[in-house]
């Protein structure tokens, strides 16, 4: 299709996978981080904090919410540059995060180079296979699952980009898969 907005370079990215990277710190998942996370989602489930009870469940011990893994990679490692100070040093009117590379940018996917500048979130999907355990080391790997071309109701071109991030533990077992779709138009 000669007038396609999908260039050969873009099509070539479908299926491209980034590097598998560790998103936990060397000590793995720990209880204090889990406590603050579960309290922030107002989940009082004893499977996350009562070891004796957790041992009596099908999980055999303390576990974390499945989505917890998605936020591990954005935390600043100890000893690293103070990202907040850096953001404001670069721009006194910073939005608090702008321009500061995050740990999760490691293993990132190459950008989709298109003339379509407007970016919209088209939805998320979470598929859960297993819950992480205390002490687990967690790894993530992203890939472009699909890049599709569509036409809006008013005839304008747009593309829908779906990225898939798979989270695994230190043994390679799949914990959960996150799919995020983004519209460019």
């Amino acid at each position: 299709m000669s007038d396609s907005i999908l260039t050969d370079d873009i099509r070539a990215l479908v299926g491209f996978a980034g590097e598998r990277i560790e998103v936990t710190f060397p000590w793995g998942i720990e209880r204090e981080g889990l406590r603050t996370f579960t309290q922030a989602i107002m989940d009082r489930d004893a499977r996350y904090w009562d070891e004796d009870f957790a041992k009596s469940t099908r999980f055999g011990g303390l576990v974390t919410p499945p989505i917890y893994v998605a936020y591990l990679g954005r935390r600043s490692p100890p000893g690293s540059e103070d990202t907040i100070t850096a953001a404001y040093a670069a721009n006194p009117n910073s939005d608090g995060i702008g321009g500061v590379a995050r740990a999760e940018s490691k293993g990132g996917l190459p950008p989709i180079r298109t003339t379509l500048k407007r970016v919209l979130n088209a939805g998320n999907e979470i598929e859960v296979r297993s819950y992480p355990k205390i002490g687990d080391r967690i790894f993530s790997q992203g890939r472009y699952a699909s890049i599709r071309e569509r036409v809006t109701d008013d005839g304008a071109p747009m593309i829908i980009i779906t990225t898939e991030t798979t989270y695994t533990d230190q043994d390679g077992a799949v914990l959960c898969i996150l799919r995020a779709s983004q519209i460019r138009r």
Binding site: D43, D45, A70, A122, I126, E127
Partner: peptide, 26 residues
């Protein structure tokens, strides 16, 4: 929001069911 929906489904399925998939838009 992305964290609340799986938490809700997990609660519905406890103790031995499984909240397998959820997809949503913002």
């Amino acid at each position: 929001k992305q964290s609340i929906l799986p938490r809700y489904l997990k609660d519905l399925c406890l103790p031995d069911g499984w909240a397998w998939k959820v997809g949503f838009q913002h």
